[in-house]
């Protein structure tokens, strides 16, 4: 099979301006993936399926990744002019200082698809797509019209991560009920407070159980106070 670099070149020849980026995988498997832009996703996917040499006719797996907002601190060299007393005289001196700056890298949601070719017997080719952010711009084009096997998996991603697939024929929740509002696989999902009975609690569960007990104690104290 072609390497990811060759596939990238092939895509960019077929679809000018597709904007494919190689996401390297530093592990032993070296299974690098291709990040495609949502605007060209359908065209790129159609190419990958229909290209005679690649003929990736089977989407075996589609899943989601949640990248929360991340605060990074980095050291920046800043040059500024400082007034200093040198040899009894005040002078303007240029000074370079290292400063730690903190900035927030906005998060996003991502889908990862594994493609195989049943006819050629090769694969996987991993393609990824990112949403603009995690809150209001969570649309990505659906790949169900190209690979039917994406249908339920995209519904699952919609259910658990909250990515909205435009062009999906039947986008409903798959595992949770329709009235449910949250997306359980997101990093910032908080489970409902049903930690009233945890006989063998540890770690995070222990913390939640203790919080629950503290809340109950607080409520009981409040009622007693109101009664008195």
């Amino acid at each position: 099979m072609k390497t990811v670099e060759e596939i990238k070149a092939a895509i960019e020849t077929a679809i000018p301006g597709a904007g494919v980026v190689i996401v390297p995988n530093p592990s032993v498997s070296g299974q690098h993936s291709l990040r495609i832009t949502p605007a060209h996703a359908v065209a790129v996917a159609t190419f990958l399926r229909d290209d005679a040499e690649l003929s990736l006719d089977f989407l075996s797996n589609a899943t989601g990744v949640d990248w929360p907002d991340k605060e990074v601190s980095e050291k920046v060299k800043i040059t500024r002019t400082v007034t200093k007393t040198v040899d009894g005289q005040e002078q303007q001196v240029e000074e370079t200082v290292e400063e730690t700056q903190k900035r927030v890298v906005p998060g996003c949601l991502e889908t990862v698809c594994h493609l195989f070719s049943v006819s050629k017997g090769h694969g996987p080719v991993v393609i990824r797509m990112k949403t603009a952010n995690r809150t209001d711009q969570v649309e990505l084009p659906s790949l169900t019209p190209i690979w039917r096997s994406a249908e339920f998996q995209e519904r699952e991603i919609f259910d658990l991560f909250g990515i909205v697939f435009t062009g999906h024929p039947d986008l409903r929740r798959l595992l949770m009920w329709d009235e449910f509002k949250d997306h359980p696989m997101r990093r910032d999902y908080v489970e409902p407070d049903d930690f009233e009975y945890e006989p063998t609690a540890h770690d995070e569960v222990l913390t939640r159980a203790q919080e629950h007990q503290a809340k109950l104690a607080g409520m009981a104290a409040g009622q007693e106070g109101a009664g008195a």
Binding site: W177, E179, F180, K181, D182, P192, D194
Partner: peptide, 8 residues
């Protein structure tokens, strides 16, 4: 019968 609410 419990009702399927928005969170639980």
């Amino acid at each position: 019968v419990p009702v399927q609410g928005e969170h639980d």
